[in-house]
């Protein structure tokens, strides 16, 4: 390629890119004037796309979405301020929802539909965000090597009998952080520090990057027990029904299983707040909640909707009734504590 070709192609491409920008610009500003709803989501595309498609089919309202990591999207929303194109922010983990609320990114939405569909403890008291699905984080064990009678609480996994038998997901994952926040809430910092230290001492392997890795490790015999979100277990069992793996509901005699939510709120600077509210209400409806459950093996937030068959088979359990905003408030303490105890 000669230099002249190189230069001329640079020019051509710059122009192309420029016009692509312009047209993207034009189409999005066009969109912000019509009735489509724009969503920033840290839920992955394959989990939200079917929902949005169903919504468009029901209502005729189009949904545009941009996926990203929760923390990064919050930062983007903050920096975009009044210029944001987002009408709704959707994320996993109550800590993230609480933090987005505390940064003044949501507006209050408290409609009758939402109140009747979603119980109060899964909604922000000021109506900034609404929980849309429940995920439980509990104990998973290898049925060949562990009897359910040996299991009891999260704290019990820190005792000597599990030395070299425990696998955990990394402390950097938000689900771990929220669980430890709930321990701080129930037991105080000192006791929680002891529990975390006990976990670290019992580890059979470096903490895993993902829940699915924790379960593979348990299956392959590297360890016997671990902590996972139930829907990861659900996906594994669906693919491999004979796997010698079961979940155990932790803390049933005490505080209950730690639960978390995925949820959404209407952004403060939404240009289509009406459409976003409509979408939020629709997501809380029985129809949408059923899709939620079947897509990701989660528990519906709408109590009138039955769980997916696979999920119901695990039985009912007592939930931790800690107010979920605590997960956000105590998160920094939880992380510090894990870092001090060497929980990677």
């Amino acid at each position: 390629m000669s230099i002249k070709t190189l230069v001329s192609s640079t020019i051509v491409f710059s122009v192309l890119a420029g016009s692509a920008t312009m047209s993207a610009q034009a189409s999005s500003s066009f969109n912000s004037q019509d009735d489509s709803v724009t969503v920033y989501s840290s839920r992955k595309e394959h989990l939200i796309k079917p929902l949005f498609e169903a919504f468009t089919k029901d209502t005729g309202t189009k949904v545009e979405y941009l996926t990203g990591k929760g923390g990064a999207l919050i930062e983007r929303l903050k920096l975009e301020g009044a210029n944001t194109k987002a009408d709704m922010f959707m994320t996993v983990d109550a800590g993230n929802l609480w933090y987005a609320g505390s940064q003044d990114l949501f507006q209050s939405v408290q409609t009758e539909t939402l109140k009747s569909n979603i119980p109060a403890y899964l909604r922000d008291p000021q109506g900034l965000w609404t929980g849309l699905s429940i995920r439980a984080r509990t104990i998973v064990y290898n049925t060949d090597r562990v009897k359910p009678e040996e299991l009891s609480t999260y704290a019990d996994l820190a005792t000597d009998k599990w030395k070299g038998k425990l696998c955990l997901r990394t402390s950097k994952k938000v689900y771990t952080k929220s669980l430890v926040s709930s321990l701080i809430y129930h037991h105080g910092k000192d006791k929680t520090a002891d529990i975390v230290k006990g976990w670290v001492d019992n580890l059979a392997a470096t903490p895993n990057a993902k829940d699915s890795h924790v379960m593979s490790a348990i299956l392959s015999g590297q360890c016997d027990v671990g902590l996972v979100n139930t829907y990861y277990f659900g996906r594994l069992i669906e693919k491999n029904p004979t796997a010698p793996l079961k979940i155990f509901w932790a803390n049933q005699d005490t505080t209950g299983v730690h639960v978390n939510v995925s949820g959404a709120g209407v952004t403060k600077h939404a240009s289509n707040a009406k459409g976003a509210t409509q979408l939020l209400e629709w997501l809380s409806s029985a129809k949408a909640q059923a899709i939620y459950g079947s897509l990701n093996k989660e528990y519906p937030a709408n109590q009138n909707v039955a769980s997916d068959d696979v999920v119901s088979a695990w039985g009912s359990f007592k939930q931790d009734d800690m107010n979920l905003s605590q997960a956000g408030i105590l998160q920094a303490d939880g992380v510090k504590l894990m870092q001090i105890q060497g929980y990677r």
């Binding site: 999005s28 545009e64 990203g68 930062e75």
Partner: peptide, 13 residues
């Protein structure tokens, strides 16, 4: 992941 505009998802994403 952080900066892309709508509709500019890449293979890496």
């Amino acid at each position: 992941y952080l900066l892309r505009p709508f509709g500019w998802d890449t293979l890496a994403i």
